[in-house]
Simulated scan of single mutants.
Amino acid sequence: MKKLLSVAGAAAVLALQGPSAFAADSMSLMLNWTPTADHAPLYYAKSKGWYSKAGIDLNIEAGKGSAVSAQRVGTGGSELGISDLPTTIQARGKGADVKALMVIYANSPQGFYWLKSSGIQGPKDFAGRKIGNPPGDAARLMWPAFAKKTGLDPASVSFVNVSPQAKVAALKSKSVDIISDFYNEHDLKVREFGDDLGFQPWRTAGVNVYGNSLIVNGAYLAKKPEQVKKFVAVTQRAYAACVKDFAPCLQALTASVSGLSPDNQRDQWERIKQLMRDDTTTKVALGAFDGARVKADYELVSSLIGIEKPYDPALLFSNDFLDRNVRMAP
């Protein structure tokens, strides 16, 4: 009798806790790189239990470049991921089953950094130089587009494999002449190199393509659209909350990821907010794509790099899962 009562009691507790306590769907999200400020909203939402309450058991996995995350999601190895949109454009052209659901960087975060004392004054001086960045990095993949836009022969530079954490040291030691990096960490480089720092953002060089975006495996989306909708709703809400107040988001990030400097991450977030803001994210919805821009990015990739199997760029993305009442602050 006692055994029956205890079983009934346990069932009552589970019922009070709600369905998410025992029926959460497992989802894997592969980041583009190791976690930093731009991923803080994900950790914040997870720490607040927002994903769990939506019936999602989210596993966040560090990435090794946009090309890797796009491939992993495209083959179904991960349900969700974050990848640079031009990389995703190419991946889909190679058969990856992916769709973009929310843009994080409405403006390209890509930039090149160098030391003015090296004699480099701008991209026209890149020829014959060494660029340091990781293999699989979106900047390396998109280099032909940047080169052609700035009048360079894409083959005129050589690439050196440098981990994200070693970029500044590589530039300082002069083992490379140039490094590519996101605008997020601009302040760190200014402090390190001062007036000797040279910088060329891609967005002012005619290559302002969409940056990191949330992507989903197409087959998974077709199978579980409601779960995907819940995930996007929580994620969009989390990014909006972090734009409003980054302090709890930073706390959630540093509690989950070791070795991060809070001051550096705060600086990064201020730059990230600039990259998140454009007419579409402020007037339509936070995270929304503009169809004309997606088409232009597709055409840029197609003309300057090539797409293995052409497709309609309208199939690459969807704004249908976003709440249009949630907008980026102007």
Results as ranks from 00 to 15, higher is better:
33 W>Y: 06
148 K>T: 07
328 M>R: 05
195 D>C: 07
93 G>I: 06
275 L>S: 08
242 C>G: 02
10 A>W: 08
258 S>E: 07
302 S>V: 05
105 Y>D: 13
32 N>A: 11
286 L>S: 15
30 M>V: 15
42 L>K: 03
262 P>G: 09
309 K>W: 02
77 G>N: 13
178 I>N: 12
144 P>G: 08
240 A>L: 07
77 G>R: 14
265 Q>H: 12
221 L>T: 04
183 Y>K: 07
22 F>W: 10
223 K>P: 09
85 L>S: 05
300 L>F: 04
266 R>Q: 15
178 I>R: 12
189 K>F: 10
114 W>E: 09
249 C>F: 00
30 M>H: 09
83 S>L: 09
111 G>R: 09
20 S>D: 07
246 F>T: 10
304 L>S: 12
136 G>W: 07
277 R>M: 01
47 S>A: 09
124 K>Y: 02
87 T>W: 01
271 R>T: 15
132 G>S: 08
118 S>V: 01
284 V>C: 00
279 D>N: 15
124 K>M: 02
203 R>N: 03
78 S>D: 12
310 P>H: 09
330 P>D: 11
222 A>P: 13
290 D>M: 00
15 A>R: 13
213 S>I: 00
239 Y>R: 14
323 D>E: 05
247 A>Y: 06
207 V>D: 12
4 L>G: 08
110 Q>L: 08
323 D>Q: 08
329 A>H: 11
164 P>E: 07
94 K>W: 01
39 H>D: 09
178 I>F: 10
202 W>A: 03
16 L>P: 04
299 E>H: 11
258 S>Q: 11
22 F>I: 08
60 I>M: 12
80 L>F: 00
65 G>L: 14
241 A>R: 10
323 D>M: 05
1 M>I: 04
40 A>D: 13
108 S>Y: 00
235 T>E: 14
60 I>N: 10
305 I>R: 03
81 G>A: 11
197 L>V: 15
174 K>L: 14
234 V>Y: 02
32 N>W: 01
117 S>N: 04
320 D>N: 15
215 I>M: 12
286 L>H: 15
102 M>H: 01
271 R>A: 14
279 D>A: 15
235 T>L: 07
201 P>L: 05
196 D>G: 03
178 I>D: 09
247 A>G: 13
316 L>A: 04
306 G>M: 03
313 P>A: 01
87 T>I: 12
299 E>L: 06
118 S>I: 00
35 P>T: 03
269 W>R: 04
260 L>T: 12
20 S>E: 09
129 R>S: 09
106 A>P: 02
270 E>Y: 08
32 N>D: 10
98 V>A: 04
324 R>F: 01
118 S>Q: 12
167 K>Q: 13
76 G>W: 13
99 K>G: 06
121 Q>I: 01
119 G>A: 05
135 P>T: 14
163 S>C: 06
310 P>N: 04
110 Q>T: 04
298 Y>Q: 10
